[in-house]
């Protein structure tokens, strides 16, 4: 690996955490919109939100596992 002066794995980890937190806030805000402005008793909207949150969490856990395995 090329020596960049600063550790590339640490930069990537910080970048991942930023994307993880930023995306999480983004998803939370959008989910709030679905809850607040969706039609009453709308099951499909809730299903969309649950699926997206679940996929996002799975991806995030996978990313965290990679960081945990290769950095710590």
């Amino acid at each position: 690996m090329v020596n960049l002066g600063i550790s590339l794995p640490i930069i990537l980890s910080i970048l991942f955490l930023l994307v993880f937190m930023g995306g999480g806030i983004f998803l939370w805000v959008l989910s709030y919109h679905f809850k607040k402005f969706g039609l009453p008793g709308d099951k499909r909207g809730r299903w969309f939100v649950s699926t997206y949150v679940l996929l996002y969490l799975l991806l995030s856990i996978f990313g965290l596992l990679i960081i945990y395995t290769f950095i710590f």
């Binding site: 590339l8 959008l30 679905f34 402005f37 990313g63």
Partner: peptide, 29 residues
């Protein structure tokens, strides 16, 4: 390293997921 590329791809897919959710919300709401 290979794991770094995988991590970058994970971040990429997270962004893709968020963008697609924005499109969906714009359509659905």
């Amino acid at each position: 390293d290979e794991w770094m590329i995988v991590l970058l791809l994970v971040m990429y897919y997270q962004l893709i997921l968020i963008i697609s959710f924005t499109f969906l919300a714009d359509y659905y709401l």
